[in-house]
């Protein structure tokens, strides 16, 4: 990772933009925004060397609230946009942020391939098991019997998507889970994720006060992971499969080849044209 050092006086609040968040009072995403700015300050990253990329949804509004470069793209396509940016500009710290619907439903295919491409990106998914911006529909991580949405009055009837298991299977090289109610732990994980050379996947349990008020209970359900991070995918798989979805911490981290073109020009278009000459 290319870390440009700036004046150490920059504090977390200096990384906040002047745009006021659209989030509901009590939304977990405020804590994620705060952790992002703390992590950037901790790493002393120059604002102009950071790009925050997102798709669509409540959590995808985050880039506009950070005083850095950013791109608020279309639903589900944050990872490809970020991958193109990083491929073209390896000097930037590229952080992708979004929600469970954006990342695991409409953008699910990109999640798989971003994991296996292993570019040096940080991917924060603020998971609240619901679509908030469209007013409370089931998402891929919603439990099958959650029947509060008019769209699925009997629940989805489908087992939830397991983000950490999928990330491992798809080849991610850093898999962690944080909680919006644990700002210090979350900031620490974010710092590690940004520093990790490769695709760092950070699932953040981020309660939705409006459509999932029962998630207030999460603060009683979360617990630290009972093992240290492993670099063994078999061990990680065993842990993830036994996980209740509430364990917090870094589960798996492994040095894997990072996909990043680094070509230096050795020819001009005029050189290439010679192949066509009879």
């Amino acid at each position: 990772m290319d870390v440009a050092v700036i004046t150490p006086t920059l504090r977390a609040k200096d990384y906040k933009s002047e745009v006021a968040p659209v989030w509901c009072p009590g939304c977990g995403h405020f804590a994620v925004l705060s952790a992002v700015t703390k992590a950037l300050a901790h790493l002393k990253l120059a604002k102009e060397r950071v790009a925050m990329i997102s798709g669509i949804g409540c959590s995808s509004r985050l880039p506009a609230y950070v005083d850095a470069y950013g791109f608020h793209g279309i639903h589900g396509r944050a990872l490809p946009l970020a991958s193109g940016l990083k491929a073209a500009r390896p000097d930037l710290t590229v952080i992708v942020a979004g929600g469970d619907g954006d990342g695991f439903s409409i953008g699910g295919n990109h999640f798989l391939h971003a994991c296996r491409r292993n570019m040096d990106l940080t991917y924060i998914v603020m998971d609240n098991e619901v679509y908030g911006m469209t007013k409370g529909q089931a998402s891929p991580t919603t439990q099958p019997d959650w029947a509060k949405s008019k769209l699925t009055p009997h629940g989805t009837g489908m087992r939830p998507f397991l983000p950490t298991a999928i990330a491992l299977a798809a080849g991610a090289s850093f898999i962690a889970r944080g909680f919006a109610g644990d700002p210090n732990g979350l900031t620490k994980l974010l710092v590690e994720a940004i520093e990790h050379p490769g695709f760092a996947f950070l699932q953040v349990l981020s309660p939705c006060q409006t459509f999932r008020p029962e998630q207030k209970e999460w603060k009683h359900l979360v617990h630290p992971a009972d093992t240290a991070p492993t670099d063994d995918p078999v061990e990680a798989a065993r842990f993830i499969q036994a996980d209740d979805g509430m364990a917090l911490g870094l589960f798996y981290v492994r040095r894997l080849p990072v996909w990043q073109p680094q070509n230096q020009p050795t020819a001009t278009p005029a050189d290439l044209e010679r192949e066509f000459v009879l």
Partner: peptide, 8 residues
């Protein structure tokens, strides 16, 4: 979307 990112 990748080329939007690289062009950005």
């Amino acid at each position: 979307n990748m080329i939007i990112g690289s062009s950005f």
